[in-house]
């Protein structure tokens, strides 16, 4: 065996070569180390420009198809929708039934913010307890497995029985919509914090709430941010759906109610304008609020690229 391999692969001795020493060219003499990007490269390099272009394509396709279909009750054109949107924006700023679209949007958003904020607070408390105590851990896993699959909207009839036909019922449902997905993400984020960072925190003498606030929350921030986004989307959907079904809260209705009423009155361009407003608010929150938080935290810290 050994002999055969020696024959097939004779032991080669590499030749001894002379040593080489070369001098390095000064970087200033190399012609093009760096080149500024061309205008076209710069424009297409911007994500917002590319996305705006895609939006434009969608709008043109919509307009063309609606004109071809020519059934304004089924699918109004983009221009009709835009006109309805504009008329709604020029209505008076009061809390009556015929108020400005912005007032209606604000009604929805203010309820949303209340429910969302409470949901986030509760999720933070529950997942902090879950990561520091064993019984808290059991409580969180039991509750999330019970309530996370339950659609928040299914609780609305019960909420209205308990809290009446008002904002409180909506806030209750919104808390339910935001709490569980966020708690789940936060908890898994906390569990994923590296043991070295945990030991560092304890080495500094941090305990309890300070340990959670100063070590666990920043270290788990990528997962928490994902949770915040999912919770926001769940809450927003739940709110519009709740308004669509049960309508008014307080003095004036929100966006969901606006869509529902206009559908009853067959003002289809207004229905589309209402949907447009829902989408627009979603886009603004995603692209400005969450994008900003991302840039200022996880991207800056190099936790996400």
């Amino acid at each position: 065996m050994l002999e055969a391999s020696t024959v097939a692969y004779p032991r080669l001795t590499p030749p001894v070569r002379p040593e080489l020493v070369s001098s390095v060219t000064d970087s200033s003499e190399i012609v093009q180390v760096e080149r500024p990007l061309s205008t076209w490269e710069r424009i297409t390099g911007q994500a917002s420009v590319r996305r705006l272009f895609l939006l434009l394509v969608i709008v043109v396709a919509w307009e063309a198809y609606a004109r071809y279909l020519d059934k304004p009750l089924m699918l109004p054109t983009f221009t009709d929708t835009a006109a309805a949107f504009w008329t709604e924006l020029n209505k008076p700023f009061n809390f009556g039934s015929d108020s400005n679209l912005l007032v209606k949007a604000w009604t929805s958003v203010s309820v949303l913010v209340k429910g969302y904020a409470l949901g986030v607070l509760l999720a933070a408390i529950m997942s902090s307890l879950a990561v520091t105590t064993r019984i808290g851990n059991d409580l969180l896993s039991t509750l999330t497995s019970m309530f996370n699959p339950l659609p928040a909207i299914a609780l609305l009839p019960l909420a209205m029985l308990w809290f009446g036909l008002g904002e409180t019922a909506l806030v209750f449902v919104l808390i339910h919509a935001a709490l569980w997905p966020l708690a789940l993400n936060m908890h898994s984020g906390f569990l994923g914090v590296s043991s070295t960072l945990r030991m560092c925190g304890r080495n500094y003498g941090l305990k309890g709430l300070r340990y959670v606030l100063q070590i666990l929350i920043p270290a788990a921030f990528p997962a928490i941010l994902t949770g915040l986004k999912i919770a926001w989307a769940f809450a927003w959907r739940t709110l519009i759906a709740a308004e669509l079904v049960f309508g008014i809260s307080g003095g004036s209705g929100g966006l969901g109610w606006f869509i529902f009423i206009n559908k009853q009155e067959l003002n289809i361009p207004e229905v589309f304008a209402g949907l447009g407003a829902v989408i627009l608010i979603g886009l603004i929150i995603e692209n400005f609020v969450f994008r900003y938080i991302e840039e200022a935290t996880v991207k800056k810290w190099g936790m996400q690229h």
Partner: peptide
């Protein structure tokens, strides 16, 4: 228990707080 009178330097590079 741990305390700041005994400071640890770890082998891992992730001992620094990235934030």
């Amino acid at each position: 228990g741990p305390g700041p009178d005994r400071m640890m330097v770890f082998q891992e590079f992730d001992q620094l707080m990235p934030w």
